[in-house]
Amino acid sequence: MVLLYAILIGVMFGAAVYLLLRRSIVKLVFGLVLLSQATNLFIFTIGGYEKNNPPLVEKGQLVPTAPYVDPLPQALILTAIVISFGVLAFTMVLMHRAHESIGTDDLHQMRDTDK
């Protein structure tokens, strides 16, 4: 299962990099979306993907029943999802505005600030 995830993550990162290197700003946004999703999946996988007990403390005990899964990666992913949602929403609006005010979706045309 971990191998499957590893391959999936690799494909997602590859696709994201490919999209980021394209000239279209729409593909740029898709690349960023894919990149953040791949990262989330990566945290999930590397944080220890196992079928174990839920990390809940049974009545009358002080620690969860071992072996239990680590709940922290999910919390990290949740935080990362919320952050990337906000940031990507902003990016999409920015790209829309860029298309409106510059009149092109081609990154090669956006060279005025590099001169």
Binding site: L20, L28, L32, L35, V87, L94, I102, D112
Partner: peptide, 20 residues
């Protein structure tokens, strides 16, 4: 302004990449 938007496209993309 147009220059701001254009600069921001580069700034935002690179910084998101770095966050990743």
């Amino acid at each position: 302004e147009r220059a701001q938007i254009e600069g921001a496209v580069k700034y935002v993309t690179l910084n998101l990449l770095s966050s990743t």
